[in-house]
Write a protein that binds this DNA or RNA. Structure first.
Lengths: 340, 340
DNA sequence: GCCGTCCGCGAGAGCGCTCTCACCGAGTGT
DNA sequence: ACACTCGGTGAGAGCGCTCTCGCGGACGGC
């Protein structure tokens, strides 16, 4: 890691432009209160010297870092097999970039990492944190809130006690699930089943609730546990067919699960959608479009979720009247393809 | 973005421990040259006050940042549909974490972003950069090298001129391709085809070269262009079947392509592997294991690639004798499943 | 027992920036 | 003509840290 060439300082620019350091600083930071000819001269000097402000020096005095931590707890590889996270990251990145903020990525696995992340955030290296709290029992949110860093969560956090005023962005999992199930019912299906996601995640819980909202008791026995993976979907679908051979529709907690279910249905000789209609959730394109038949599913605007999280973090203070309910829930839309 | 509570400074710790700032600094940075009882006292003071060093102040004088930029050029969404990038990121993250470095993620799309990234890197905010240079004509590598930041590339960069002493980590794409094709030949196949990847990426070029190494002229007319996507794989497979109906084996440039090809083969009533054997590349688990039949493919240790990139960046200077060839190529292994 | 050595520690400068404050000159009101 | 304001500029302090340097005390050699 060789040292780079010495970079020009404010001082150097000031000398070149024949003004004081203070003036250069003003120009660099927007140029308010400096007369035009001077601004011009300073700009040129900056240009000629290739001056770039030293962020460390600036942070030292402003106590701002123009950097935001993105914390992703990913105990399993699941997060990564999943375009979900990547899309969200992209939304976040765009928004941060638009506001000249940097994205510091913190991946955690295991308990030790939690401490590390907690320490880092408490260290005041970043102006805020965007946290994906994937599991109900995750200690991370608590740690982070204790660190006193402004935080926005991705997905409704799963705890109910202790932490208040938590800001989060989520999809309307429950409403989307309702739409999906209603669609199936509207198709005339009467034996509608649900393969759940991993129920230690609120998204899975909420989708299950949406299913129950529509099906009520009628759906009670048609709920099978899955885990958001294709393998889980296969397992659940087998169990379902064994237990209730007359099932004529399946609402799967996500597209991967649906893909697994589809495979089992084909294997067992059921036609989709004629015999069994199938709906997924997420609208992960590479999956949903490539299944056979293409998957009807519930779309959420994942990238927008990311962007919104970032926006909330950066501007949250100003825009939010105090006492505003802190969760933002984005709508979902049903995307009709061939499977239902 | 509320201000956090005022954090204790070195001065405060020094006062509490009854020593000088310098001594506390020494202890915090490893404690060499400080006698045990003092070290103990300082440690306790640090503990009690919850002192965390101010990274900005430290960077200001040391000119180190303990931060590394990861630059991902992702003009298309492709990168993100792809666990590849995520796995590599994970390897990088692990290695960086192990050395107390932070990961600053820079996603770029489009030309303007290039300038932005160039400026950022030139600004000396990070100690080094890990760059995924996906396309042959990417201007980013040039920009970065000009910025004078130590850099390691992911994947062999595609240019041949201008830039020297480029450090990169890559898989043995060519060798892996050779293994795959040899395996097909060993199976007794004589009409072995290749569906290429996007040929503006070196990985695709190298895999094609590997194919040619084994097949020579015999394979000339059995090469079809793909683009690393399932749709591209389908298109190419159709073209291939139309042009050479007697094809009995396909080496696809990656698993996604192979998945597309498999679909077309099924659609056209060819049995895999009986009529046509198929091999992919990458061993992306969610894909390779879920295809029908499960895909024989070439595995690369993607996470290890990431880890190695980080290691090279952090320790490159010390370990590398000057003049060492700068590319590190990781081996691949053929994973036999059912498709070939 | 004296001088030279060496180790442990503290004093102080300074990293590059922002920001407050004082200053200065040009305009305004009387 | 005078004081008075006010916007534009410069001087200077100081953010929290590291690092060099110099001082003092313990220790070994003669």
């Amino acid at each position: 890691m060789t040292d780079t060439a010495p970079r020009p300082t404010l001082e150097a620019v000031a000398a070149r432009a024949g003004v004081s350091r203070a003036t250069v600083s003003r120009v660099v930071n927007g140029g308010d209160g400096v007369r035009e000819p001077l601004v011009e001269r300073v700009r040129r000097a900056v240009e000629e010297l290739g001056y770039v402000p030293n962020q460390a020096a600036r942070s030292l005095v402003t106590r701002r870092h123009d950097a935001v931590a993105v914390v992703v707890a990913e105990p399993e590889t699941r997060v990564f097999a999943d375009p979900f996270f990547a899309l969200q990251l992209r939304g976040i990145s765009k928004e941060l970039t638009a506001h000249d903020n940097q994205l510091v990525l913190l991946l955690t696995e295991g308990r030790d990492d939690h401490a590390r992340v907690g320490r880092y955030l408490a260290g005041g290296h970043v102006d805020g944190a965007l946290v994906f709290s994937l599991h109900l029992d995750d200690p991370l949110p608590g740690l982070i809130q204790r660190a006193g860093v402004p935080t926005v969560f991705g997905g409704r956090p799963g705890w109910s006690d202790g932490l208040r005023d938590v800001v989060y962005v989520d999809s309307d999992n429950r409403g989307g699930a309702r739409d999906a199930v209603r669609h199936l019912v509207g198709l005339g299906r009467t034996r509608v089943a649900h393969i759940t996601g991993a129920l230690d995640q609120t998204s899975a819980v909420d989708r299950l609730e949406g299913f129950k909202d529509v099906m009520g008791d009628a759906g009670r026995e048609l709920v099978v546990r899955g885990d958001f993976t294709p393998a889980g979907g296969e397992r659940a679908m087998r169990e379902l067919l064994d237990r209730c051979p007359d099932v004529d529709a399946v609402f799967a907690a996500n597209d991967l699960t649906a893909a697994g279910a589809l495979r089992v249905l084909r294997e067992r000789g059921r036609r989709v959608p004629e015999d069994v209609a199938v709906i997924g959730f997420d609208d992960m394109l590479p999956i949903a479009e490539q299944t056979d038949p293409p998957l009807t599913t519930v779309r959420q605007d994942i990238e927008e979720m990311g962007r919104l999280m970032a926006r909330l973090l950066l501007h949250g203070d100003e825009e939010t009247p105090p006492g505003t309910p802190a969760g933002v829930v984005l709508p979902t839309t049903l995307v009709r393809r061939a499977s239902a």
